[in-house]
């Protein structure tokens, strides 16, 4: 298979997402099949071809840095699972 069980776990952890044992087994099989399919791209001669990351070939879009009102804090915190005063609340990060 194109991707090992350990790689599946490694990739999930790069994204900070846990997976069950069943999910690891299923994704190993499915992702391997899809990654094998990606090999078709190796047939393409891309020597000297520049990459396209945006179809409009936009340059950086700049604007003046003018202060303007932001969303009210209470509107933004209304969707927060946990908050305290003007902050999002999480488990302690530092010991």
């Amino acid at each position: 298979m194109a991707i090992t069980r350990e790689e599946v776990q490694h990739v999930a952890m790069l994204f900070r997402m846990s997976l069950s044992e069943e999910e690891i087994a299923k994704f190993q099989q499915q992702l391997s099949q899809i990654i094998d399919y990606f090999q078709i791209l190796q047939e393409l001669d891309t020597e000297g071809v520049p990459p396209t990351s945006n179809p409009l070939a936009l340059e950086n879009v700049m604007r003046d840095d003018e202060p303007r009102p932001s969303f009210p804090t209470e509107d933004i915190l209304a969707n927060a699972p946990r908050s305290e005063r003007d902050f999002f609340r999480v488990r302690a990060v530092l010991e």
Binding site: I3, E7, V8, V11, A12, M13, L14, F15, R16, M17, S18, L19, S20, E23, F27, Q30, L31, I34, I35
Partner: peptide, 21 residues
């Protein structure tokens, strides 16, 4: 990690994994 495991469905997880890979 748990939020993402239980908040996302299979196809979303598959694509996250493909992209991260």
């Amino acid at each position: 990690e748990l939020t993402r495991q239980h908040g996302f469905g299979d196809e979303v997880k598959r694509r996250i994994m493909l992209g991260t890979y």
